[in-house]
């Protein structure tokens, strides 16, 4: 587990990317990990073409949850919202790499769960295409 905390993880933890709030998000979601108290909020802005064109996250918690949320925001920009809804935890594992223990997996995937629930909630409100 100690080999998990590589330089780029510590960098994302101490200098999180896309940190803060959007003034006018299209959709927001937040969640917490009640076991350890990690909190993440995601604000997504979606353009007319259904593409995420801006994103911010905020929250507090361990290096794993905050760094993986920070890295995830970099992936989200430019994605179709429908693809965000379909993301799996593989994207997080690819970002943070090896060395995460099963007990900390919930920390690593917290940002992902929040982003997905924002996307799924927003898509559910879209009018049917027919």
């Amino acid at each position: 587990m100690d080999d998990f905390y590589r330089d780029f993880i510590l960098d994302h933890y101490r200098n999180p990317r896309n940190f803060g709030r959007l003034d006018q998000p299209t959709v927001s979601a937040e969640d917490l990990n009640p076991l350890c108290g990690d909190e993440i909020r995601m604000d997504l802005h979606v353009n007319g073409a259904g593409i995420v064109d801006d994103v911010r996250f905020s929250g507090k918690g361990c290096a794993i949850s905050q760094a993986s949320a920070s890295m995830l925001t970099e992936e989200l920009k430019g994605m179709r919202l429908e693809d965000v809804a379909k993301l799996t935890k593989e994207v997080v594992l690819e970002n943070v790499g090896i060395g995460i223990s099963p007990t900390r997996m919930k920390c690593a995937t917290l940002g992902l769960r929040v982003a997905k629930s924002a996307a799924i909630g927003e898509i559910a409100g879209w009018p049917d295409e027919e």
């Binding site: 587990m1 100690d2 998990f4 990690d38 918690g61 361990c62 290096a63 794993i64 900390r104 920390c107």
Partner: peptide, 14 residues
């Protein structure tokens, strides 16, 4: 310092 308690516990666990 700025080490979150969970990260600290994980490192100590090793």
């Amino acid at each position: 310092a700025d080490i979150h308690a969970h990260d600290l516990a994980s490192i100590l666990d090793t």
